[in-house]
Amino acid sequence: MNKSQIPDHSPQKNSGDRNLKAPIKDFEPKIVGFLCNWCSYAGADLAGTSRIKYPPNIRVIRVPCSGRVNPLFVLNCLMNGVDGVLVSGCHIGDCHYSEGNFYARRRFAILKRLLEYIGIDPRRFQMAWVSAAEGERWAKLVGELVEEIKEAGPNEHFGGNR
């Protein structure tokens, strides 16, 4: 993430008001993805080795399991101006640690609703199950996320792209 390459789209920092702004055409969202090592990371890797093209907006952070993801990781990203956060793990029943994704599912169901409640666009926090064999699906998912977060616009709630 070279800071000099990131255009500053935030004329009204901290305004929190989408309506005041003209649509931004060349906005390239920054997305952070927390991917579990055993499924989603391998799935993303497969997409890479299969040379499937998908938008480069996602920065991947490998975690042992979706159950390892602390809601603080998500908040920390959002507070630092990341436009969208994805937590991705194995499909239910496939977790390498049997139960990790069950816990993650509960935890993030609550966080997702809470963030929405305090006025953070729900598109900015997403969760997915992607298996090691789903390279295609991974690429498609990232494409969709990028489109959705483009629509949501840059995250300027907290000082925007710093």
């Binding site: 069950f102 816990y103 509960r106």
Partner: peptide, 16 residues
Amino acid sequence: PLLSCFDQNDPEDFIR
């Protein structure tokens, strides 16, 4: 405790 347990059928309509 709520977050130290789960149900197989917990809702997941928010997950893609």
